[in-house]
């Protein structure tokens, strides 16, 4: 079962996204900040991370740069509640595989994760459909 990490400072959002991933047949774990997430990947590396862009302290962009600096090839889907074209460019340049705006439609989100996991594994890895 693919494992997806959710990093978002908003508890309600974090809980809801984790539930959605679990309901779709994925394993999911959530983190309230980039620092917690980066600390956790030393123990278990997710197959994909859903990364909120705007978080207090360490932003999603900071996490992407940290992942790149530590040479971890971890597919990251950036999610944001505040769409800015420049931020999209910055995130994609920093290594994000996708940039999605909240509120997230489950089909788009799951298809994006599915495509990301598939690319990462070099085969087909689909979350359990509904």
């Amino acid at each position: 079962m693919s494992y997806v990490a959710v990093v978002d400072d908003e508890e309600q959002v974090r809980k809801a996204l984790t539930r959605l991933l679990l309901a779709s047949g994925l394993d999911a774990e959530s983190y309230a900040c980039g620092k917690d997430f980066l600390g956790a990947i030393a123990k278990r590396i997710p197959d994909c991370v859903l990364l909120d862009l705007h978080m207090p302290g360490m932003t999603g962009l900071d996490v992407l740069r940290e992942l790149r600096r530590s040479r971890r090839a971890l597919p990251a889907v950036v999610i944001t509640a505040h769409n800015e074209p420049e931020a999209r460019e910055e995130c994609l340049a920093a290594g994000a595989v996708a940039y999605l705006c909240k509120p997230l439609d489950d089909r788009i989100l799951l298809n994006t994760i599915s495509a990301t996991l598939s690319r990462a594994s070099g085969g087909h890895a689909t979350p359990g459909g509904r």
Binding site: L20, K102, D105, D106
Partner: peptide, 9 residues
Amino acid sequence: NQPLTAILS
């Protein structure tokens, strides 16, 4: 968008 995301998801 934050609560809307929570509601939708």
